[in-house]
Design a protein around this nucleic acid. Structure first.
Lengths: 207, 207
DNA sequence: CTGCCGATGTCAGTTACTGACATCGTCTTG
DNA sequence: CAAGACGATGTCAGTAACTGACATCGGCAG
């Protein structure tokens, strides 16, 4: 299975993250990344469509994780609960990669092109989540709205996780962000808007 | 005031849109755009930071328009109403540029890089709107939420306007999208989530 | 008229990215 | 075990996005 030095792709990802963090995205050439990984520039571009993509290699796996988690949620569960459960699963993965995940986020925030790429990845995640919800029988306006809200919660949580020294764990921050959303939508009196995503058969509270 | 052939920037924008529409974004070089505008490639890059930006020259003006509209809304108006009024003002501008606006949108949708750029521009608009709301005294979670919701409504409306033959005017589509949002958030029984953005002193309905 | 200034042109250079083809381990098949 | 087949990598040449340095041109102030 393994041929040359094994996991060329992974070495490229590591080298890129290190260099982007050291001297910045713009000041790093693809050739330098490849060299540090013991490969050539051409090979870099065989593994990644462009210089930015090397930071988003995990997006596909993350998307699959989220979709699977939603698919495995009991069909009777409220859509938002299914999404939140998926977010916690994804958060757990990031929590493992702690240091590199936080370093990655710092690099992205510091560069406009990388922020652009992240936005489109998040949009893609939301689309995939909405589709997964639809597969679960959630009807259309609710599916998209729930997915978007879920991604928004995740985004806010990761932002805080990254900015703070990462003392508090992601799972807690996800819950806090979710709680803020609840407070907001419940504002007026009762019957929170969250009901829009929850009016299926509310149950199951995996906080 | 006018020196050479007047409005070099505008000519570049027109030339770029025409070429992107004809042969696609990737198949168009900056040199070709400049040539069609009677200028050189170097001048193109003096006016626009990159090949994509030439399609977003109006973003700044649009943002200012939205912010101004929100700023001029009566302080007593509900935040969402102020934003909606701003969206209608912006919609009116697009409605004037009808053909080029729709052509532009078609070009953007057809290309991933351009979609990325549009996402970050919309995010920027939302940020600016939120700031404008804050200036009006809207408190924090509501300001951001209202701005994001407003941009979402606008995005949906423009998408429909572009995809359909553009028969129905943007203003109507904005109202329809807004109505859908209301229905969604009001789902349960009463006390719609929109109340979250509206619980100031509700009034003023510029449909 | 003269000198200043801003917009443009010219030129050379770097770097992201791509296509074509060669090479080199490894695995399969006879 | 030899002969390919095949996939991953290397090599090389080329296009095009962008950038910095410097020249030039047209109008405007004095």
């Amino acid at each position: 299975m393994s041929r040359w030095a094994a996991d060329a792709r992974g070495r490229l990802e590591q080298a890129a993250l290190a260099l982007y963090a050291e001297r910045g995205f713009d000041q790093t050439t693809a050739a330098e990344i490849a060299k540090r990984a013991g490969l050539t520039e051409r090979t870099f571009f065989r593994h990644f469509a462009d210089k930015r993509e090397v930071l988003f290699g995990g997006a596909e796996a993350l998307q699959e994780l989220l979709v699977t988690a939603v698919a495995e949620a009991p069909a009777a569960a409220a859509p938002l609960d299914a999404v939140v459960a998926a977010l916690h699963a994804a958060g757990a993965v990031l929590q493992e990669r702690r240091e590199s995940a936080r370093q990655r986020q710092t690099v992205i925030v510091a560069n406009a092109e990388l922020r652009e790429r992240e936005l489109i990845k998040l949009a893609s995640l939301a689309t995939a989540l909405a589709e997964a919800l639809r597969q679960q029988g959630v009807r259309e306006p609710a599916a998209t709205l729930t997915a978007e809200a879920g991604i928004a919660v995740f985004r806010v949580a990761v932002e805080r996780w990254t900015s703070q020294s990462g003392k508090r764990d992601l799972s807690r921050l996800i819950n806090e962000s979710l709680h803020e959303l609840n407070v907001l939508t419940a504002s007026g009196e009762r019957s929170p808007a969250k009901a829009a995503a929850r009016d299926n058969s509310a149950r199951r509270g995996k906080t």
